[in-house]
Design a protein around this nucleic acid. Structure first.
Lengths: 205, 205
DNA sequence: TTGACTTTCATACGGTCGTATGAAATCATA
DNA sequence: TATGATTTCATACGACCGTATGAAAGTCAA
């Protein structure tokens, strides 16, 4: 919202904040342009439509997120360690950008077709993790089971625990906005996922 | 939408469907009344306002859900078994009522205060599971860790995997609408949670 | 400084929004 | 069947919606 930055950037920043907080239908073009200190016509002028601005916002959130995870997954090491590292990278991004799960959740809750940027994000992240799961299953370090379901289990905890901030704050004495407390949540997720996937443990049905 | 049922019931049924699919702001009173085959004024007449109808809808979804979980958790047996049973009961409810996670996700994504019915639902479910976790930690059958975080990890997988239906369908050959395939997801979650919580396994950091 | 351009701006358009109003229809009870 | 309460209905209100329009202001090479 730096008043010196160009109008399209200010609009994107306003969109990121307002769409996250109030959703697409709950945010009007007048809200957006007022927040960005641009004229009412700026959305049409720079993006063509409110929808197009929304999609641009989704891309701006989703792409660096998927990229961070993929990069962490490319590091060398045993598959399980790389899964946990990828998850930690994703959680680090969520720590800095808590709006990401909000956009995803809203789209999952709706009946519309998943917008392309969200679909790409999920396909890429699930694909990245599922590939590592398959690798670990081949070398015996990761337990049997559907790789995609295992990947989704891991992802779900990260997204949910980030968004359940208010539940956590109410029920527990953790404020997930604070980096120290968020670090506890991250460690918890890493440990949970490790336990879920590790093969070197007897298990009952 | 049985045309014989009373107008308030038809409105609640329409609200359940439309609010879930399009959200609060994406659903107009005109949509609701048309779907329920009632007059435009019926929402005001029976519920007072659109907001009040929305809250009534949330209660109608959340209360039986929490009740089913609490009931399963009351059965006798070791804590870990009761956790898995409670989770299976919750997942069974989600199998019949896929709208529940949609409402929760939308509220979590928004900035509004959690509506009372949703807050009650989460507090009750987290409380139910966390109490069982504490019980298992006392008798040594469940590993150490924050009981609330452990409970949230379990819940997150259930909600997310139910809502990620479209991701699953795209990435995998599972149609979670079909009971047979949904049963696979349920078994997966039960197994994951068991592994996450069980203490009788050595684990790394 | 001119002239062609990009960008900003105020305003207007047809629609739809949630809710209010009061008359008409329906129902239950006496 | 008459009466009073409940429920249905058509319609109206002011507010806000997303987008279009064309004039005004700003930018910069020639």
């Amino acid at each position: 919202m730096n008043p010196a930055s160009p109008a399209p950037d200010r609009l994107l920043a306003a969109a990121r904040d307002l769409f996250r907080r109030h959703g697409y239908d709950g945010t009007s073009v007048r809200d957006l342009t007022a927040r960005a200190h641009v004229n009412l016509g700026a959305v049409t002028y720079y993006f063509g439509s409110k929808q197009a601005l929304y999609h641009a916002t989704l891309s701006a959130v989703a792409e660096p997120f998927a990229e961070r995870i993929a990069e962490a997954a490319r590091q060398p090491g045993p598959p399980l360690d790389r899964i946990v590292a990828a998850l930690r990278a994703g959680l680090a991004y969520l720590g800095e950008h808590p709006e990401a799960p909000a956009f995803l959740f809203r789209e999952l809750a709706s009946d519309r077709a998943l917008p392309a940027p969200i679909a790409r994000l999920m396909k890429r992240n699930v694909g990245t993790l599922a590939a590592l799961v398959r690798e670990g299953q081949r070398d015996g370090s990761i337990r049997d089971g559907d790789p995609v379901l295992l990947a989704l289990s891991a992802i779900s905890q990260a997204f949910f625990l980030r968004s359940a901030a208010r539940i956590i704050r109410d029920a527990l004495d953790i404020d997930p906005q604070s980096p120290r407390q968020w670090a506890r949540v991250v460690d918890h997720v890493a440990e949970s996922v490790r336990r879920t996937l590790d093969n070197h443990q007897g298990i009952s049905a």
